[in-house]
């Protein structure tokens, strides 16, 4: 587990040809780790039939609407695999 609750993380800007579970609207955006949700096989690998798939920690990451859309007071929490995230220095 690389990130702890409260950590600021940035969703990577990934745009592979294959399946990915990184919603486009959070790519490049900074959010806060709410919790580590346990480990799960990486859907990118499963969808391509790669055996065994990489297994990574999945994090609930909360983004502020103002960051995502430039407006709004709500938050959006997205479940993201560890390799979709990078540290914010």
């Amino acid at each position: 587990m690389r990130f702890t609750p409260g950590a600021k993380v940035r969703a990577r800007v990934l745009d592979p040809d294959h399946h990915i579970r990184l919603p486009r609207y959070v790519r490049g955006q900074v959010g806060e780790v709410i919790e580590a949700e346990g480990e799960g096989p990486l859907p990118d690998d499963r969808a391509r039939g790669l055996m065994p798939p990489r297994v990574e920690t999945v994090y609930a990451v909360r983004f502020r609407a103002a960051e995502l859309w430039g407006t709004g007071t709500h938050s959006v929490t997205v479940d993201l695999w560890e390799s979709y995230l990078e540290e914010v220095p």
């Binding site: 919603p23 949700e37 609930a60 709500h74 938050s75 997205v78 993201l80």
Partner: peptide, 12 residues
């Protein structure tokens, strides 16, 4: 009232 949206993008 603050709104929290949960996008079920993984296995939760």
């Amino acid at each position: 009232v603050e709104i929290s949206v949960w996008d079920a993008s993984a296995e939760t």
